[in-house]
Design a protein around this nucleic acid. Sequence first.
DNA 1: GCATTACCCTGAAAGC
DNA 2: TGCTTTCAGGGTAATG
Length: 273
Amino acid sequence: MPEMPEVETIVRRLRRSAPGRRVVDVWLSGLPLRREIPDSFRREVVGRVIRAVRRRGKYILFELEPRSYCLVHLGMSGRLFHLNAAGERPLHTHAVIRLSDSSELQFSDPRRFGLLAFHDVRRIGLIPEIRALGVDPLSDRFTPAWLFAKLTGCRRDVKAFLLDQRGIAGLGNIYVLEALFRAGIHPARRCDTLDAAEAARLAGAVRRVIRAAVRHRGTSFSDFMDSEGRRGEHQRFLRVFQREGETCIRCRAEIERIVQSGRSSFYCPRCQR
DNA sequence: GCATTACCCTGAAAGC
DNA sequence: TGCTTTCAGGGTAATG
């Protein structure tokens, strides 16, 4: 399940391989993803040149020339490969974008929760999905003071807050739970019960977890692969995620699982309050 | 207005 | 062994 570190890993690879190439052809499976890909997508994208590859939250943005954007979200099970030459299309391939150097971008997504869209706008802030996103956890705006101010007026569970892309953009279930463990905060704590010191611990934990995961090129728990088909390494460093019944690395208590808003939460009942 | 729940989908795992 | 059921989850729409 690609979160920000996995998307960042893909974007860093694509930045080396995609800019400067012109789109010469687009193939679409015709099946709907999160939304239908309109027939106009092919007509709009063919002929444009990829100028840059960017990331906002879990979204990948191809900046095109003349200025416009191709927006990609990997959803739960999406993969984006950049192959040197036309290759075999894996099962559940929904889009193939052929480039001027004979390479091709392949987008596959078995569960079809992903997104592929074209936006004829000058700035990424004009794309509704991007405008709705909150601060990036690695940006200068994400500070302990900012986080404490946000938590103070919020009555939800801290886990629900951290998962909400409108507040902090990029976190998913894995890194939220890992950050809460490192900060010693129970996932069901109400936001407005956290004090300034806890908010500071949480802000630091989020940054450290995300930085470590980016360094390890993401977590390949089930099937994540980067744009060259390489698996990530961060699964070896997870401390609570999917470790129900195993012992806490810090206090030897048994890791527990609860369900919040239909999602699993893993935590140490002794270390996290 | 805010918070929670249901839904989309398929593959893997569990249950029978 | 083989079929059926359950579960997983990101984002959004619907509901409370």
